[in-house]
Design a binder for these strands. Structure first.
Lengths: 110, 110
DNA sequence: AATCTTCATCGTAATATTGCTATGTAAATA
DNA sequence: TATTTACATAGCAATATTACGATGAAGATT
């Protein structure tokens, strides 16, 4: 045990979970915030912004990239990381949909 | 190591991370989806919906509750779990804000 | 070519998560 | 009161995450 049973959920549920999980660490939220602020950046910049060692930041960036939240292109000696709008859009529309459904349903029990 | 360094991030970053982490598992996404569908429910119903044993579902519900995503009130012999609109609203506005900033910035490098 | 810079990867230890069975608790029912 | 029902908790094993220092890879600089 310890492994998630991804087989039994819908593709959408697994997709949202993967994206949410990637943002389930404050360092990765901080990375996204920073990428948004500068709109482009390299790993070294982020290392200076975070209270983490370079390999740890590199690892967090890898996880964000694996989840599809950021894109990274090698550019000579540096790497340009950017936010993937599609992934953020997915999350935004997912939560917007929940909000809509919640306001439409006002026969709450709690 | 293995423990997250929450001290060094902003309160907002930690808050988003806590909420996102709670949704970082497909079972918990499925629980939220189901709660939204029925708008009120008890744990037993969810157990029938998920491919997990009752204690595991109970644990996931606890994590959702600890993160503040759902509210649960004891009602006699059953427990009524509902989505906390405020938490969903926080996530929705966070991602909406990112979307807005992304469309305003079109001088991307990637 | 030797070195520097920038980032990735390897190997690791500490801690957290996932999921289960067994058991506990407390209200409802027989 | 004994039993059932509905959920929580305890305790465990398997796996995942977090973070680091050491090292590797590859373009840039001297």
């Amino acid at each position: 045990m310890g492994a998630t049973k991804t087989d039994h959920y819908t593709e959408k549920q697994n997709g949202i979970a993967i994206l949410a999980k990637a943002l389930g660490h404050p360092a990765r939220v901080a990375i996204v915030d920073y990428l948004l602020k500068v709109d482009a950046c390299i790993c070294g910049d982020i290392v200076n912004e975070l209270p983490l060692a370079q390999p740890t930041v590199s690892q967090h960036l890898k996880e964000l990239k694996n989840a599809g939240l950021i894109k990274g292109d090698i550019d000579g000696n540096t790497i340009c990381y950017c936010i993937d709008e599609k992934a953020i859009g997915q999350l935004q529309s997912y939560f917007a949909g929940i909000c809509t459904k919640l306001t439409n349903k006002r026969n709450n029990c709690c």
